[in-house]
Computed example of a mutant assay.
Amino acid sequence: MLLRRLARPLLATIFISGGINALRYSKAHADMAAPMLEKTIGAHSEKLPDSVPTDPETLVKLDAVAKIVAGTALALGRFPRFSAAVLLASLVPTTASAHKFWELEDASERDAQRIHFLKNAGLAGGLLLAVADTEGKPSLGWHARHVAHSTGKQVGSLGNSVQGGLRNAQKSPSHCARRAKRARATAGSRLRSH
């Protein structure tokens, strides 16, 4: 659809640009992210394996690469739902560390950061729509409901068969004996006619 081919690159552009900018100025971005990283990852760094990076500059670079790769994939329509989910996961810590308008004293700076915060909230909304967009194909939720519904029908049909058999077995012994006698008679008459 033409709308998706236009909307995805428009949505991805800010992330690709932001990722390139973060790579170019990784030290400045790391300084901005350091307080939030210290509160989150720093408190648990001794529990993490040695192979997991915890220094702010490396984490900023990894986040930048994720934004560039996922943004490019979204723009090209490659794995768009997954790419949008990666960008959304990247947007949350970026917004939380860079646009804490509620902590600022200066009114003009607070207003500017509030605008950036709300812009990122709007981008998050667009990414949520991209994550949910199945391009008209049935979603996993639809498939799960469909399987559950048809399984329920089969179980119900099986239950009815079992109940019918139980009802027949519970009928009086004389009724069952008459049915068996009729069945033997029918089988005997078939044998004689051949």
Results as ranks from 00 to 15, higher is better:
D133L: 07
G122F: 02
T13G: 10
L123K: 07
A85T: 10
F79A: 13
R114E: 13
S26T: 10
E57W: 03
K119E: 06
G42D: 08
D63C: 10
K100I: 06
D55N: 15
A130F: 00
R24Y: 00
G126L: 04
H143G: 01
L11A: 01
V131Q: 02
L129K: 13
I68D: 01
A75I: 07
K61Q: 15
S45H: 01
I20M: 13
L88M: 06
A148R: 11
L140M: 03
K119P: 03
E135A: 08
A144W: 10
P35C: 00
P9I: 07
A107G: 05
S17Y: 15
S83I: 09
G136A: 02
S139L: 03
K39A: 14
A124I: 02
K61R: 15
D50R: 14
G136D: 07
A89E: 13
L118M: 07
S51C: 06
G125H: 14
M32V: 09
Y25P: 00
R78A: 01
Q113A: 05
Y25T: 08
R78W: 14
L10S: 09
V92G: 13
L87G: 02
L140A: 03
K100C: 09
I68V: 01
D50I: 13
G18K: 14
T72S: 15
E103L: 15
R145G: 10
T58R: 14
A130H: 00
K137T: 04
D133A: 11
L91G: 05
G122E: 03
K67T: 09
S97F: 08
T95Y: 11
A148F: 02
G18V: 12
V65E: 01
G18T: 13
T54R: 01
P9K: 05
V60G: 04
T72D: 09
K100V: 09
F117C: 14
G18D: 11
H99G: 06
A70W: 04
K47D: 10
T94K: 04
D106A: 15
L104Q: 14
H29S: 05
K67R: 15
S45R: 14
A84Y: 09
S108K: 15
H149K: 15
A28Y: 00
D50H: 10
N21Y: 11
G126Y: 02
D111H: 08
G122L: 07
Y25Q: 15
P56R: 08
P80G: 05
A96S: 13
V147S: 08
P53S: 12
G42R: 09
A28K: 10
T13V: 09
E105P: 06
M36K: 03
A22I: 10
F117P: 05
A28S: 14
F15S: 00
L91D: 02
K119W: 03
I14W: 05
M36I: 06
V92D: 12
A107P: 15
E105C: 03
I14Q: 12
K137G: 01
S51I: 12
H143A: 00
I41G: 03
L123I: 04
H29Y: 13
T58P: 10
A144H: 11
K67F: 11
I14D: 04
D55S: 12
V86K: 07
L123H: 03
L123T: 02
H116L: 02
